[in-house]
Computed example of a mutant assay.
Amino acid sequence: MSDVSTDQVPEPGQFVRYLGLELTEVSGDQVVGTWQAGAPLHQPYGIVHGGAHCSVVETLASYGAAVWFGDRGQVVGVSNTTDFYRAVREGTLTSRATPVHRGRSQQVWIVETHDAEDRLVARGQVRLQNLPADTM
């Protein structure tokens, strides 16, 4: 994580490491990550499984929302809708999360994934609930 203060962002868990997702920028305004399309993430027809795309969408949105909410508490995803535009078998993918809404109780983030030729592969939206520390 190059543009990230490690005290702001928790270490990725095993699942995120399995996806091969490398966070290159994390802030409350944008999260960027790269990952590799390949056989470990394929569904039976030899393309990246939609669940892998959804997982990347959820991960980037959650990191951004958590950094923005900061010490005020925690955030949890309550909705993830991801659309798929282009099948991918191999190569580097870059996903970018940006906020659409950051309110008192909820946030909405959009995540777009592009291939190495900058073609849109998938686009997801995640709605997150802000859980203030004094209510947990």
Results as ranks from 00 to 15, higher is better:
His101Asn: 10
Glu90Ile: 03
Gln43Trp: 02
Arg119Trp: 05
Gly103Trp: 01
Val26Phe: 04
Ala116Val: 12
His49Lys: 08
Ala39Trp: 06
His114Val: 12
Tyr85His: 15
Ala52Phe: 06
Thr24Gln: 11
Leu19Pro: 10
Pro132Cys: 04
Pro44Gln: 12
Val88Arg: 07
Asp3Pro: 05
Ala122Asp: 00
Ala39Met: 13
Arg119Pro: 03
Tyr63Ile: 10
Gly33Ile: 00
Leu41Phe: 08
Asp71Met: 03
Val88Thr: 14
Phe84Trp: 07
Tyr85Arg: 14
Gly73Leu: 04
Leu19Val: 12
Arg102Cys: 13
Thr24Met: 02
Val108Pro: 07
Gly38Ile: 02
Ala133Asp: 12
Arg102Gln: 15
Ile110Phe: 11
Ala37Lys: 06
Glu58Lys: 00
Gln74Met: 13
Val75Glu: 09
Gln14Leu: 13
Ala116Tyr: 01
Ser105Met: 00
Thr34Trp: 00
Pro132Tyr: 10
Trp109Gly: 04
Pro99Val: 03
Ile47Glu: 06
Ala37Pro: 08
Gly124Trp: 05
Ala52Arg: 06
Asp115Leu: 04
Trp68Val: 01
Thr113His: 00
Gly51Met: 11
Met136Phe: 14
Arg86Asn: 05
Thr94Met: 03
Gly51His: 12
Ala87Asp: 10
Thr81Gln: 15
Gly20Cys: 08
Asn80Ile: 11
Gly38Met: 02
Ala66Val: 03
Ala65Val: 09
Tyr45Lys: 14
Thr6Trp: 12
Cys54Trp: 08
Thr94Asn: 02
Glu22Leu: 01
His114Thr: 09
Trp68Gln: 09
Gln107Cys: 01
Thr6Arg: 13
Gly64His: 02
Asn130Trp: 01
Val57Gly: 07
Gly70Glu: 05
Val56Asn: 04
Ser55Phe: 10
Val9Cys: 03
Gln107Val: 01
Ser105Arg: 13
His114Tyr: 10
His42Lys: 02
Thr113Gln: 00
Tyr18Ala: 15
Gly50Ile: 02
Ala61Lys: 04
Gly28Val: 05
Thr135Ala: 09
Ala97Cys: 11
Thr59Lys: 00
Thr113Val: 07
Trp35Gln: 02
Ser79Trp: 00
Leu128Met: 12
Tyr85Asp: 10
Gly28Thr: 06
Arg17Val: 11
His101Ser: 09
Ala39Thr: 15
Thr135Lys: 14
Val67Arg: 01
Thr81Met: 10
Gly73Gln: 00
Thr82Tyr: 02
Gly28Phe: 02
Cys54Asn: 12
Val108Gln: 07
Val76Ile: 12
